[in-house]
């Protein structure tokens, strides 16, 4: 690890002010950041530990949803009986990711902001536009079985690895942030992530020092919920493809995909096709897909995983 100074933040405003420096970073659970710091992929000069901030509660909102503090651990959120009863999709998605040890440390905010697991982002001997802007993308012609097929650019085909974010996207979650100048804003989770384009190193719309305070879930939508994940091992592996589905009796509903893009992938036009079944939905979802020589299997896998998830959700 490169040397850094360490500060345990005592308040939200102080934390944001400290992290506004371009070489500073927030740290919460640290399960992704410390790994990246050991490899010198992340090299913050200053760490602002937000672990002691009062952002670790799950509260009811007036509209009948839940406000999840950014520091609520993945374990605590998945085990919360309100989530298990009203948003089972979210519990299922969280429990489908990582191991218990990691979920016990990983936080809600950190999960959303974790970095890609593209092998070339981790391999510091290879070019990667996300790690070193302008250096090129080794994944395009390399080992790219796990990489994205949607929303990709000639500069980056990295996929976002979160399961939790897929469920939250299907649930219309909103991210509440606060900036160093004190300004608060609410960002639909769908709008948090930036497409790679020519700047794959800029992954979100957050400004330096802007802190995710909480994630708000609107009241649970009608219908049955199901998260289904396909991976290379039965447990503790990232998704090749995952589906978060919410299905009503009449066949309408919502679908978000994981493992296929730089963000959870959801399309209104595809959801309009839901009563017509998985094939019709998939055609819309995968419009414009750009698979590689190694990951074209993801396209039929999306349809099959979606068909299975819809069948399960319908019971």
């Amino acid at each position: 690890m490169k040397p850094f100074s360490y500060e345990r933040a005592s308040g939200v405003a102080a934390a944001c002010a400290s992290a506004a420096e371009p070489t500073a970073k927030f740290i919460a659970g640290g399960t992704n950041l410390i790994d990246l710091m050991k490899l010198q992929i992340e090299t913050p000069a200053h760490l602002v530990d937000i672990g002691a901030l009062p952002l670790a509660d799950v509260e009811e909102t007036q509209e009948g949803g839940l406000r999840i503090g950014a520091l609520v651990t993945n374990s605590a959120l998945a085990a919360d009986m309100r989530v298990r009863r009203r948003y089972p999709l979210l519990s299922q998605a969280i429990l489908a990711g990582a191991s218990t040890q990691l979920r016990n440390k990983a936080t809600t905010g950190g999960n959303l902001l974790q970095r890609t697991r593209c092998p070339y982002f981790y391999d510091t001997t290879k070019p990667c536009n996300k790690r070193v802007p302008g250096s090129g993308c080794a994944a395009l012609a390399g080992l790219n079985r796990m990489n994205a097929v949607l929303g990709v650019s000639d500069n980056c085909i990295a996929a976002h690895p979160s399961d939790m974010a897929v469920a939250m996207t299907a649930l219309d979650a909103r991210v509440e942030t606060v900036a160093p100048d004190g300004a608060a804003r609410t960002i639909p989770l769908d709008a948090l992530y930036r497409a790679p384009g020519n700047t794959p190193h800029i992954e979100t719309v957050l400004a330096p020092g802007e802190l995710i305070r909480s994630v708000v879930l609107p009241p649970p939508p009608p219908g049955r919920q199901r998260y289904r994940k396909v991976r290379d091992r039965a447990s503790y592996a990232f998704a090749l493809v995952s589906v978060g589905a919410i299905v009503q009796r009449d066949g309408t509903g919502r679908v978000a995909l994981g493992g296929v893009a730089h963000r959870p992938w959801r399309l209104e036009a595809a959801e309009a096709e839901m009563p017509r079944g998985a094939k019709a939905v998939t055609e819309k979802l995968l419009a414009g897909a750009r698979p590689t020589h190694e990951n074209a299997f993801k396209l039929p896998l999306v349809e099959r995983t979606l068909a299975a998830a819809l069948a399960e959700a319908r019971g």
């Binding site: 490169k2 100074s5 371009p22 070489t23 992929i41 950190g110 190193h201 957050l206 400004a207 802007e210």
Partner: peptide, 19 residues
């Protein structure tokens, strides 16, 4: 937690230890 390029951080002359 905004993402930034992995630029090399300037190394402090001495790393202060922490209690």
């Amino acid at each position: 937690m905004a993402s930034r390029p992995a630029e090399a951080a300037a190394e402090p002359a001495q790393i202060p230890s922490q209690k």
